[in-house]
Each structure stands twice: as structure tokens, then as C-alpha cells.
Simulated scan of single mutants.
Amino acid sequence: MDLSPRTEPQGGVLPPAGLVLLHGTRMSRAQWGPYLPLLPGTEVVSVDLPGHGDRVAEEFTRQAALRTVADAVAQAGPRPVVAGHSLGGYLAALWAAEHPDALGALVLIGATADPAGPLTGLYRAFARVMPHLDAERTARRMNALMRLLGARGEHADVLPGGAAYASLPAAWDLVIAEAGPRLLEEVRCPVVLVNGQLDQMRLHVRRFAAHARDPHVVTIPRATHLLPATHPEQLAEVLRLALALARPQEPDAPV
């Protein structure tokens, strides 16, 4: 794996790339608050996806979700790095597939399980029963598990309540219907595929890497799917390396 920075072109120093951070299912932009001290000097843009955070009452739709990504990319400046965890990673890949020249780098965190694979049935079943469960009780149990697995301090403080589960079926339906490794085929920037060693969403990382033009695979030892909450220093290091990898605009390439 080569994560060395790109050589700057002669004639001037490139401005640093901005960084867009997209949260996972149930979470919110608050997921990334503890990362700001770990990314000094970086222009960070984090947003709530529809149905999450301050937008928990909004309907999650494909159009609204991808518009949110587009707005965040525009706010971050030219050719930013876009990094997404879980749902955020799949949405980042969907957006990048439609704008293959727009990014400096793409980082998928815990988002390399092919939705066409064997996990699909399990996730569909959970989404179907979710409306019939006590959402607050489910959230308490899930948050307790996250704390048990290592979420501490600020990362534990931002764990969401039950209202965040309402958008889960629509979000997973979109991922299952449209996400997958082929989204990376036309993406022209470096693609960093980062997973916890124990993450079930790491299942098809080689398949995703095979479809990317410039893949970089990173595995965080002993981490699970909860990697952003349990291993922030290690993930911040990967994000810094992705910023160093960010590919400048080629002279004749359209955006």
C-alpha cells in the first residue's frame, strides 16, 4: 500500500484540500466533532444527512441524501477529500460515481461489503422489523454495546436516541439497491478503503479495490465497525494520509 503524498506540480504550492466527513446510520455530524483537534489546519465540513441529527424529522430519500453530499462538497472547496462511514461511505461512493472527476480522494470507512452479497438478507430483515420495535430501548442497547466495545468520552456522549432509527429502512434500501464495488470504476481519484480488522463490512474489500483505479487498503487492527468511535487516533491518521494523497486537478480534466 502506497500512501505517500502526490508530488506538487512545478510553479506553485497547491492549497490544502478540504475534508468532507459523512456519518453512518443513526449517527449525526456530531460523530465527527472529536476529530477536529486531531486534524489541525484542515478545513472540515460535516453535515447531518436527512433523517439524522438536527434533520431527524426529514424523510430520507436518494435525492435529499445526494443533494446533502453535493452541498458539503461545494462548501469544502475545489476537489476535497470525501470520507464516509458506513451509510456515509456508500453515499460518498454513489455521489463520486456521478462526479468521477470532482474529488481529490475518496475514503470509504466500513463500507466495503457488497450489498449484493450474503449480508443483504440479514439487513433487509432487520429493516423490516425495525418499525415494530421499541426504538428507544433498541437505541439504549445499541449504545451500551458501543460503549462496551470502546466508545469513550466525547464519542460516547454523541450516541443517538431512538428517533434516528426511523430513516434506517429507507437508507438501507438505497444502499442495497444501488451501492456496490462497480461504483468505483470511473472514479479517477485515489480511493482509500479503511476497515476495522473485525468489521463485517470489510467482507468484500478486495472486490472494491479491484474496481477502483487507484485503491489503497487500510486495516485497523482489533477494530470493529465502530472504528470512528473506538479508534479515533488511528482513523485520523488515515484521513491525514488521504489528504496528502489528494490528487490535484489535471489541466484538461473536467469537473
Score class of each variant (00 low, 15 high):
H231R: 13
A244P: 04
P228E: 07
E58T: 01
A127R: 03
H216Y: 08
G117E: 01
T224A: 11
L108D: 03
R79P: 00
P251E: 13
E185A: 15
P232C: 10
Y165M: 14
Q63R: 14
L36A: 15
R29M: 11
L243Q: 07
A65T: 07
T7Q: 14
E136Q: 15
V175S: 00
T68H: 03
E186P: 09
L174S: 01
H225V: 12
R206Q: 15
R140H: 10
V81P: 05
S4E: 15
Y165Q: 13
W32L: 04
V82Q: 01
A244M: 09
P80N: 03
I109S: 02
P15Y: 09
M27P: 01
L22W: 04
G110L: 06
T25C: 13
L106D: 00
P9I: 08
T224N: 12
G53V: 05
A163R: 13
L21T: 10
A57H: 14
R188C: 04
I220G: 01
I109F: 04
V69S: 02
G12E: 12
I220E: 04
T61H: 01
F208C: 04
P169D: 09
Q200E: 14
A244G: 15
A116F: 00
E237M: 04
S167I: 07
A151Y: 03
V45E: 03
L235V: 10
T61L: 01
L39Y: 01
V194N: 00
D252Y: 15
P80Y: 01
H216L: 07
A170H: 03
L106R: 00
G153V: 10
P160I: 03
G24A: 08
L36W: 11
V217Y: 05
G180I: 02
R247H: 13
R55E: 08
A83T: 08
D157H: 09
S28T: 05
A242V: 06
A210N: 10
R147K: 12
H23P: 05
R213W: 05
G153H: 08
L235F: 08
D252M: 15
L39K: 04
R188A: 13
A156D: 01
P80C: 03
R128C: 01
V191A: 02
S167D: 07
G24C: 06
R67S: 13
D199K: 06
L19G: 02
H211R: 15
L159N: 02
Y35W: 11
L241Q: 15
H85I: 07
L183T: 09
Q75M: 14
D173G: 09
A72H: 04
P78R: 11
A246M: 08
A209F: 11
L148C: 08
A74I: 06
G11W: 11
L36G: 10
T120H: 10
L22M: 11
V205H: 02
